[in-house]
C-alpha cells in the first residue's frame, strides 16, 4: 500500500514550524523557526509580534519542510494543523494557511490539539511505543495526567487546579531576573544549588490533580522577605529547592496513577519535559518500580510540527477530518476537561 505523506503545521506560540511525516512515525523533515530572540527584551512572548513573525515565516518554513523531505507539494496526502490551545492571532496564521493548502491541493485537513501532539511526539522518538500508557503532560500552560487507551481514545485523569508547572517556573524566573524563557534557566541554575536548602511546601491536592500557585507564592514570599531583610538570596539554592518541590509533586501523582490504573508505561510530554531534573527523577522513580519510561529527545520537546503531523496521521485513520470553516480555539483543553 502507498505510504501516506502528512504535512504538519504549528504556529500556536513563538515557533513557526512545518514537518513532513511518512505514515505515522517516519520524520522526513522537521523545520522550526524560533522567535525567542525577538521576544527576549520583553521578558515574554508578545502575541502581536509573534503573529507578525508567523505571517512572514509561514511559507518559507513550509517550503523548507517540503524540500528537505525530498517530496513534491503535490505528493502530500493530508494536512494537519494545530488549532489550539495557544495565542489566537498566532494560531490563525497556521490555520488559514493549512486550510487553504488543503483546499488548493484537494486533500483532507486534520485539526490537531497541540497538547495531544506533545504526547504523540513520543511515538516519533520511540518507534516501539504503543498504547495503553500513562502520560504526564507538562507545558507552559498545562499540567495533566492522561491515560491513553488507544491512539484515538484518551482519559483525562487529573490536571492542575490553578497554575501550570511551566507558569510557576516562568514567574519565578522573572522575579529572579533570569532571562526569558525562564524554565531552562531555572533548570541550569538548579544544577549548582542545594535542593534541600529551603523547605518549600509540597503541594497537596486530592485525586490526580495538581496545584502550583501555593508553592509559587511561597517562593515569591521567600525571595521578597529575604531581600527585605537585606540578605543575599542564593539563587541556585532557591531554583534547586523550588524545582525539587515541583518535580516531587509531579512524580508522586504520576506513580500513584500508574499503580492505581495498572499501567506499566509512563510517557513524559510537553515543553517542560525538557527539564533535566524532571526527566532524571521520573526515570529513576520508574526504574525503581519496574515501569517503562519514555521521554522525547530535546528537539522534540519544544513546539514542533512533526508531533502535529503524527497526531494528525492517527486522527486520519479514524477519519477525524476538519471542515474548511475550522477556526482557532485558543483555550482548547484536553477532551473531558472543564473548559
Amino acid at each position: 500500500m502507498e505510504k501516506i505523506l502528512t504535512l504538519g503545521i504549528e504556529t500556536s506560540c513563538d515557533e513557526t514550524a512545518a514537518a513532513v511525516l511518512r505514515d505515522g512515525r517516519e520524520i522526513l523533515s522537521n523545520v522550526i523557526s524560533t522567535q525567542i530572540p525577538l521576544h527576549q527584551k520583553f521578558g515574554g512572548v508578545v502575541p502581536e509580534l509573534a503573529s507578525r513573525k508567523h505571517i512572514v515565516n509561514i511559507m518559507p518554513v513550509v517550503d523548507e519542510a517540503i524540500r528537505t523531505a525530498g517530496v513534491e507539494l503535490s505528493q502530500i496526502n493530508q494536512i494537519a494543523v494545530t488549532y489550539g490551545p495557544g495565542l489566537v492571532g498566532a494560531l490563525l496564521v497556521g490555520v488559514a494557511a493549512a486550510k487553504t493548502l488543503a483546499f488548493a491541493l484537494k486533500v483532507p485537513l486534520v485539526a490537531v490539539n497541540h497538547l495531544e501532539g506533545h504526547i504523540f511526539v513520543n511515538f516519533l522518538s520511540a518507534p516501539e511505543l504503543e498504547p495503553p500508557f500513562l502520560s504526564l503532560v507538562v507545558s507552559g500552560g498545562h499540567t495533566a495526567l492522561i491515560k491513553m487507551n488507544t491512539y484515538n481514545e484518551f482519559e483525562l485523569l487529573g490536571q492542575t487546579r490553578d497554575d501550570a508547572a511551566g507558569e510557576a517556573f516562568d514567574k519565578i524566573a522573572r522575579v529572579m531576573n533570569l532571562p526569558y524563557p525562564g524554565g531552562p534557566e531555572i533548570d541550569r541554575l538548579a544544577k549548582t544549588g542545594n535542593p534541600d536548602a529551603i523547605d518549600f511546601p509540597h503541594p497537596k491536592v486530592a485525586d490526580f490533580d495538581f496545584s502550583f500557585s501555593g508553592l509559587k507564592s511561597s517562593v515569591l514570599n521567600y525571595l521578597n522577605s529575604t531581600s527585605m531583610r537585606g540578605e543575599t538570596v542564593n539563587n541556585a539554592d532557591v531554583a534547586a529547592s523550588f524545582q525539587r518541590a515541583v518535580v516531587d509533586s509531579l512524580i508522586d501523582k504520576t506513580i500513584d496513577a500508574a499503580e492505581n490504573f495498572g499501567l506499566s508505561k509512563i510517557v513524559l510530554a510537553g515543553g517542560v519535559a525538557a527539564n533535566s531534573a524532571l526527566e532524571s527523577s521520573l526515570r529513576a522513580a520508574c526504574d525503581k518500580r519496574g515501569l517503562k519510561f519514555f521521554y522525547p529527545t530535546k528537539i522534540l520537546c519544544t513546539d514542533n510540527a512533526a508531533m502535529i503531523a503524527c497526531r494528525g496521521y492517527y486522527q486520519s485513520l479514524a477519519e477525524d477530518f476538519a471542515p474548511l470553516t475550522l477556526n482557532a480555539v485558543p483555550n482548547l483543553n484536553f477532551k473531558g476537561a472543564a473548559q
Binding site: 503573529s51 508567523h54 490563525l92 488559514a96
Partner: peptide, 19 residues
Amino acid sequence: SFTGLRIGLATAKALAYAW
C-alpha cells in the same frame, strides 16, 4: 484589522504557493 489582514494574507499566500 491586524488579525483580518493576516487571515487574508495567509490565505492568499497559501493559494499562490500551492498553485
